[in-house]
Amino acid sequence: MEFSPEYVGYLASLLLMISFALKNVKLLRMVNTVGCIVFVIYGIMLSAWPIVITNGFIAAINIFYLVKDKK
């Protein structure tokens, strides 16, 4: 079975809907961070640097807030 980022997108969409329903911001940030990291790796494999930079930046912001809000 070949890896396809579409699967991550489907799973992320499902988890995001659940997060919205539960109003869980921390879960939203975690799902978004994992999705961004997957697309950073995928972008590196394709040498698609705009994808890598954009998703890396979003992941870094989410990680910052996840660490900052950890109580």
Results as ranks from 00 to 15, higher is better:
2 E>M: 11
2 E>S: 09
2 E>F: 11
3 F>N: 01
3 F>H: 07
3 F>Q: 02
4 S>G: 08
6 E>M: 10
6 E>D: 08
7 Y>S: 03
7 Y>K: 14
9 G>W: 05
9 G>D: 10
9 G>N: 10
10 Y>S: 12
10 Y>T: 12
10 Y>P: 02
11 L>G: 12
12 A>S: 14
12 A>Y: 04
12 A>K: 03
13 S>N: 11
13 S>W: 07
14 L>T: 11
14 L>D: 07
15 L>K: 13
17 M>V: 13
17 M>C: 06
18 I>P: 04
18 I>K: 12
18 I>D: 06
18 I>W: 00
19 S>F: 01
19 S>Q: 03
21 A>W: 14
22 L>F: 13
22 L>I: 12
22 L>W: 05
24 N>K: 01
24 N>A: 09
25 V>I: 10
25 V>M: 08
25 V>W: 04
25 V>F: 05
26 K>R: 13
26 K>G: 00
26 K>Y: 13
27 L>G: 06
27 L>H: 04
27 L>D: 04
28 L>C: 07
28 L>G: 06
28 L>R: 05
28 L>N: 07
29 R>W: 01
30 M>L: 15
30 M>F: 02
31 V>Q: 07
31 V>W: 10
31 V>F: 11
32 N>S: 03
32 N>F: 05
33 T>K: 01
34 V>G: 00
35 G>C: 11
35 G>N: 14
36 C>M: 13
36 C>W: 03
36 C>G: 05
37 I>Q: 06
37 I>P: 00
37 I>M: 12
38 V>R: 09
38 V>L: 12
38 V>T: 15
39 F>E: 01
41 I>F: 14
41 I>H: 15
42 Y>S: 06
42 Y>N: 07
42 Y>P: 01
42 Y>L: 05
44 I>M: 11
44 I>T: 01
44 I>G: 03
45 M>I: 15
45 M>E: 15
46 L>I: 03
47 S>D: 12
47 S>A: 04
48 A>Q: 13
49 W>L: 15
50 P>G: 14
50 P>S: 14
50 P>L: 13
51 I>V: 14
51 I>A: 02
52 V>D: 06
52 V>K: 12
53 I>S: 11
55 N>Q: 07
55 N>K: 03
55 N>I: 10
56 G>K: 08
56 G>L: 12
57 F>Q: 07
57 F>A: 15
57 F>Y: 04
58 I>Y: 00
58 I>A: 12
59 A>D: 04
59 A>I: 00
60 A>K: 14
60 A>L: 14
61 I>K: 09
61 I>F: 12
61 I>A: 01
62 N>V: 05
62 N>T: 09
63 I>W: 04
63 I>K: 00
63 I>D: 00
64 F>E: 07
65 Y>M: 14
65 Y>E: 12
65 Y>T: 10
65 Y>R: 05
65 Y>G: 03
66 L>A: 04
66 L>W: 00
66 L>V: 01
66 L>F: 01
66 L>Y: 00
66 L>T: 03
68 K>F: 01
69 D>R: 02
69 D>N: 08
70 K>D: 05
71 K>Q: 13
71 K>V: 09
71 K>A: 08
71 K>W: 04
